[in-house]
Amino acid sequence: MSSYSDYLKALWMGFISLPVILVIIQFLSTQLGLSRFGIFITLYKGTPLTINYIVRWLLLSESEAFRGFNFWAIILTWCVGWLFITDWVRNIKATTLGIFLTYVLYVIYVTLYHRYPLKLVFPSSFTPIIASLIVMILAYTYRRTRKTKSFFDKLREAGIEFPDIYLKLVEIPQKCGHCGALILSNSEYCWKCGEKLGKINV
């Protein structure tokens, strides 16, 4: 069940988030005054943006998309998008398939829905897929190799200590060492003789 939802999450988030990220990058480049340093993105030209147009940029099917920093903005969009999705979904199969399916859905959206004659050039038009896959593999490998703190490490860091008996895993049923009664939980006392179980061998 959870794996189906991973595939859905990866596909849906990929499809929705990339255009949004590209618009955010365009907005930031304008608002931060990056054009003064020669960094200039020409997605927005004063007329309202259509989703169809943004998706064509993301597919690198517009000749303008290759000009200047436009190309790097598009690659950055794909990489940032799939970096977040990899971290969120945490399922490499779902994320890999998500990258390809997102690309295919974009192509379907532009060609079948908007009847736009899409021109894809090999290999340049597929650069976003390759870049996204590299970023995803790096992110996934980093996550796997990074030493994560256990729940108990975090408690220790917060200065919370517990008696050893709290950290000892007791097999259920446990047997009271004093009277031999069976106990169906890791209770602190024996129900039969009232003996404190932490003090004796269990």
Binding site: I183, S185, E188, Y189, W191, G194
Partner: peptide, 15 residues
């Protein structure tokens, strides 16, 4: 947050 005691009802209420 811990199980203090667990057992048959009568035994528990006698403690």
């Amino acid at each position: 947050g811990r199980v203090l005691i667990d057992g048959p009802t009568r035994a528990i209420f006698s403690r």
